[in-house]
Design a protein around this nucleic acid. Structure first.
Lengths: 212, 212
DNA sequence: TGATATACTCAACATTAGTTGAGTATAATA
DNA sequence: TATTATACTCAACTAATGTTGAGTATATCA
């Protein structure tokens, strides 16, 4: 089951399948996919087999609604539905493509009701620099992308290719990324010593295990 | 769509459906349900219609795998699969039936990977008595039922019909429920003034919105 | 005690849905 | 340039699945 790249159309089909899956709370039939794409059943079936051949889905042969998505397309992220799949970003690139698949280390599907509006990805917190705001090492924070959040917001910033969570504030009147743990120092934003990029605001949190 | 009570058998069937749903990542067919119950297709179909009549499931007529669970039975909780539906308990009864549906205020489906083993329900935290452990007002804690957790564990206890989160510890050598906020006082466990019942241990946490 | 709900069996029917054969047109590849 | 992959159409077959009729036995309810 080699995993090859998809054509544009194939990615489109995969996205449609994922969306139908969320909307209907079950895998779509070949005919439902065909109808959505406005093509024939056979056309849709061919696509589905291509996606299977390339390892993106699994087909339970001879079984109604037998499609199982193995590698979800990232376009599901912004879609509405019941479960919202959010990628966990390992590294955040200093450059442009924030939601590029290559930086995903995992994807977790969360119930609509716990995902704040606009949240697009998650990030694992390293260190206790925000412990004053009760965000501790190992927590997963939910992030809403926003390069210009209001002052006072807890944000995710990328400094020299490393992601960090801090509060956007001021120190002696100058804008800075302020930790809420006194053991850490604020990072001024006006002196352009390092490349700093604000990625978004923290809008939620998940703690998978408690520390003793 | 009146919601009536289920018979024992009907609850059993609902549980089977829910389990098949998780295992197969899609709703089961009538025949799959029948096979699992070792009864005929018609027998299973009758059950399914009863469950629909009583408002526990919805049947998308004429559609393969058309069952949608509206009110999941709590037995799904401990099952493996992809999404794990966890009820949020509003009140916790001082009496016996901990996971009785009447106390559910909501159900949220969480990805397997963020639900620690054995977690069975969630509880919204009121107050900041555990702020020293970075659990704040409004947080949802995931609870693994366990009436005898080891000392040092953060537990959910019911005191006079009210649920509270505290750490199981000792004060002056005597067992007590200890808050991690100095503004609150420990609650001794040995003097039986009030009825105290330890329900389980806190194994995870979800924060849906951050406070400024 | 008759009516209704539960919990089934057996058999059959109708529709849905998976799957295949044959063929067209275009673009990419060896 | 022949071959293969992509992206489809049309038509048809078969298997899977939903659905119904008729009937049995037991328990509950009015």
């Amino acid at each position: 089951m080699m995993v090859e790249g998809l054509t544009e159309r194939q990615r489109e089909v995969l996205t449609i399948i994922a969306r139908l899956m969320e909307q209907g709370k079950r895998p779509p039939t070949v005919r439902e996919v065909a109808r959505t794409l406005s093509i024939t059943v056979r056309g849709a079936y061919d696509h589905i087999r291509s996606l299977e051949r390339k390892g993106y889905i699994d087909i339970r042969r001879g079984s109604a609604r037998g499609i199982e998505i193995l590698k979800p397309p990232f376009s599901i992220i912004s879609t509405s539905g019941q479960g919202i799949p959010l990628p966990i970003l390992g590294q955040i690139p200093a450059g442009d493509p924030l939601l590029s698949e290559e930086y995903w280390i995992d994807t977790i599907s969360l119930d609509r009701s716990i995902v704040p509006d606009g949240a697009a990805f998650m990030l694992e917190v390293t260190g206790d620099s925000m412990i004053g705001d009760h965000i501790v090492d190992g927590d997963l924070v939910l992030v809403r992308p926003n390069p210009q959040p209001p002052e006072g917001t807890i944000v995710v910033a990328v400094i020299d290719d490393e992601a960090t969570v801090k509060r956007l504030g001021r120190v002696e009147g100058r804008p800075a990324l302020v930790p809420s743990n006194p053991a850490f120092s604020p990072i001024p934003l006006d002196e352009e010593v390092r490349e700093i990029r604000i990625v978004g605001e923290v809008v939620g949190l998940i703690r998978r295990r408690l520390r003793r």
